[in-house]
Each structure stands twice: as structure tokens, then as C-alpha cells.
Simulated assay, not measured.
Amino acid sequence: MNTYQFVLLSIFVFTLCFWCGYIVKQNEKGLIEQIRSTPNLTDTAVPTPGFNEDALQKISKDDPKWLQLYEREPKHRPNFTYLISEHSKCRDVMPFVVIFIASHPSEVQARLAIRASWASKKQWYGKSVLALFLIGNESREQTGKLYLEHEKYRDMIMQDFLDTHKNLTHKTRMAFQWLHDFCPKAQYIMKTDSDVFVNPGNLVNYLLNLKEESSQTLFTGYWLQGAPIRNKRLKYYVSSEEYPLDVFPPYCSGLGYVISGNLALRIYMMMCHVMPFTNEDAYVGVCLRLLGGQVHMPDDNLFFIQRIELEDKIQHLIAAHWVDPVAMKRHWETLQKT
């Protein structure tokens, strides 16, 4: 090969590499634009109600200790990736209430029992009720099974955090984030667990009979208040670095609390300013407190946290804890006969 041929070959190779690089860049650019145009995470174009600064100013005067938990910059915005989002659920029918059910990947039988019982009926009193399972990530094998389960039932939300007890706060935040990202016009949400029997008919009836002024600020369930557990040996241990105060504000047990959609969106925005800590239910209570909201006590005994015989109460309750898959189906059959 003479010098002239070598120069021609070099020019050809350079030109080929240039165009290959240009094509790759254009493909990357197209992919980025596609991701940016997808309604996901915090890039949603849906307007979200903010929180009133007056509430923070009032807290600073009345009880300023709570402001230790608030950071002005939204540095705690959720940043986990959706592995399953099921964002089409609110595209055609806007649900009256979305019921988020926290579930561990291994709780297949519990999910099947819920699907076959109280989540099987989608309309109550002419109102749409949507039930979705909240799940974190686990092993590759388990995640593969969850994908197959979701393909069959289309009722799961999953992000890429490990599904552990310590990450339950991330799972709860995921519910509020999903509402913000994909279903911001839902009128109400309920957060519950996979060992809870829910009576959606009573839930819808209760919400339909609310006074109008209460319907926009509703936060109700089984009322709790207490202090963080500082014993490292206990399951619900909360370090002082996570949560520096000695008391939690009033909050509701995770067995089942109900929130108006507008307030739930404001809670999500506040979550972006409050560092997550272990005890997901108290964490939601902190965000509610910083918004100036409060827990509404239901008029009747509608939420049961203790393990009790439910046969004579099933017609009147909204949620009952400690129900196994067999009992879940039995209670549903009882309810259907009445």
C-alpha cells in the first residue's frame, strides 16, 4: 500500500466513524426525548396543589419543634424508578377512590384472596373503586414472577427499592407518588395492607355522606399517637438521626386510612421536604402536621386494629386487620349474602 492509498483509507475510516458516532448520538437524543415525553415520576405536566406557607408560619408560632423535620428545598423527592406503574388505569375511568394495598412479593395467596373477594367488584353506588398492590423489588427470580402476575391481573405498582421492613416508608411514598404522577384527579385514596378486609361499599357510602367542607380535607382511620421506639433490638426502632423529636404527631394506623385526593397530593408535595424515617404511618402523620391538617375521628367504630371475630361486624365496618386469605374469602361470601 502506497502513501496515496493509505491517506484515502484513513479518510474513509475517519468518515465512517464520524457518521456512526453521529447516528448513535441521534439515537440517544431520540431516546432521551422519548423518556422526557413519558408521564412518569416528577416530570408530570399535571398541576399539583401546593401547601400553604401560612400553615408553616402558624406552626413556627404555636409549636416550632415540628419545623426541625421540614427542609425548604425539596431534597427528599422520591427518585426510585417504576418497574411496574400500571399508569393506564386512570386514563378512561377516573376512580372515586383508589385503594393502595401494601403487599410483600411473597404474599401471592393474600393477593389472590383479595382479588377474589372485596377487590373483585369495581363499582359501588355508581362510583368506581380501583385497587392496586404496592410492591418493592426482591430477587431476580421473584421479580420475574411478579411481572408474570402483573401481566395477568394488571393491578400492581412496583419500584426498584428492596422490599424490606425498613423500606416500608418508601412503599407508602410510592402510593402518593403514583397518585401524583398518574391519577391526580381521583377524589379519595385509601392505604391498607394485604391482611386487611376492606368493605368498599361502606367506604364509598361513608365518603358520599361527608359534608362538603370535610370532603377536601379528610384524613381518617384508626387514630394513633405515640413516641418513637429507641430500643435497637426492637423491630420498629427509629434512630434519633432519622427522627430527632421525642413524640409523633397524631396519625392513623396503616391498617387503613382514607384521605381526600386533594390533600393526598399536598401530602406528596410535603414528602419531598421531609426526610423519610422508619415508621411509615407516623411519617405520613408528620407531613399532615406540617400542612396544618388533622386526623378526623370517624363517628362510628369503622376501623378494627385488634384481632376480633368479625362475622357480626362485617356489614358495618370499613376495614379490619389480621385477616388471613381463607377468612378473606369467607367474609366476602358472608357480605354477599346480606
Score class of each variant (00 low, 15 high):
Leu245His: 14
Pro105Lys: 05
Ile84Ser: 02
Lys127Asn: 08
Pro64Ser: 15
Leu245Val: 14
Ala320Trp: 02
Met328Ile: 09
Phe182Arg: 03
Ser260Pro: 02
Leu130Pro: 09
Gln159Pro: 03
Asn202Trp: 10
Lys191Ser: 08
Asp181Met: 02
Pro39Ala: 15
Ser253Phe: 11
Gln68Val: 10
Val108Gly: 03
Lys191Glu: 06
Asp62Ile: 11
His165Phe: 13
Lys121Met: 02
Glu71Ala: 08
Thr278Arg: 14
Ile23Ser: 05
Arg77Leu: 07
Asp246Tyr: 09
Thr217Arg: 10
Gln109Trp: 02
Ala116Arg: 06
Lys145Met: 08
Phe12Gly: 06
Lys29Leu: 03
Thr172Pro: 00
Leu310Ala: 08
Thr81Met: 09
Lys58Val: 13
Ala119Tyr: 02
Lys75Gly: 02
Lys25Pro: 00
Asp246Asn: 09
Ser37Tyr: 14
His150Ser: 05
Phe248Tyr: 15
Met297Glu: 06
Gln57Cys: 12
Glu212Phe: 09
Gln306Asn: 04
Asn40His: 10
Ala282Met: 01
Asn79Phe: 06
Phe219Thr: 11
Arg36Gln: 15
His321Ile: 00
Pro95Ile: 08
Glu73Trp: 08
Val24Gly: 08
Lys121Gln: 11
Lys171Tyr: 04
Lys89Tyr: 13
Trp118Gly: 05
Gly30Val: 13
Ile59Gly: 14
Val98Tyr: 02
Val258Phe: 11
His316Thr: 06
Lys171Gly: 04
Leu203His: 02
Gln225Val: 15
Val46Pro: 02
Ile114Gly: 07
Lys58Arg: 15
Gly201Trp: 11
Val286Lys: 04
Arg91Cys: 08
Arg330Gly: 02
Thr48Asn: 07
Pro47Cys: 04
Asn199Leu: 07
Asp62Lys: 12
Lys329Met: 09
Ile189Leu: 14
Ala186Gly: 05
Glu33Gly: 12
Lys61Leu: 14
Pro244Val: 12
Asp281Thr: 06
Ile84Glu: 08
His316Gln: 08
Trp178Leu: 09
Tyr251Thr: 07
Val198Asp: 00
Tyr222Leu: 05
Asp163Cys: 08
Gln306Val: 00
Ile308Leu: 06
Lys58Trp: 06
Val46Asp: 15
Pro184Phe: 13
Pro105Gly: 04
Arg233Ile: 05
Ala319Phe: 07
Lys337Ile: 14
Thr3Ala: 03
Gly254Asp: 05
Ser85Pro: 01
Met297Lys: 02
Phe219Ser: 12
Leu265Met: 08
Ala264His: 10
Ile259Glu: 12
Tyr206His: 11
Leu148Ala: 15
Leu132Ala: 09
Met328Val: 07
His331Ala: 01
Lys191Leu: 07
Lys122Leu: 11
Val295Arg: 05
Phe219Gly: 10
Cys20Trp: 02
His273Thr: 02
Lys185Trp: 00
Leu291Phe: 08
Val97Ser: 03
Leu162Gly: 04
Asn27Cys: 13
Thr334Asp: 11
Asp281Cys: 03
Leu179Trp: 12
Phe176Asp: 05
Trp178Met: 12
Ile11Asn: 00
Lys232Tyr: 01
Pro95Phe: 07
Leu134Phe: 03
Leu224Met: 01
Phe100Asp: 02
His76Ala: 03
Lys337Met: 15
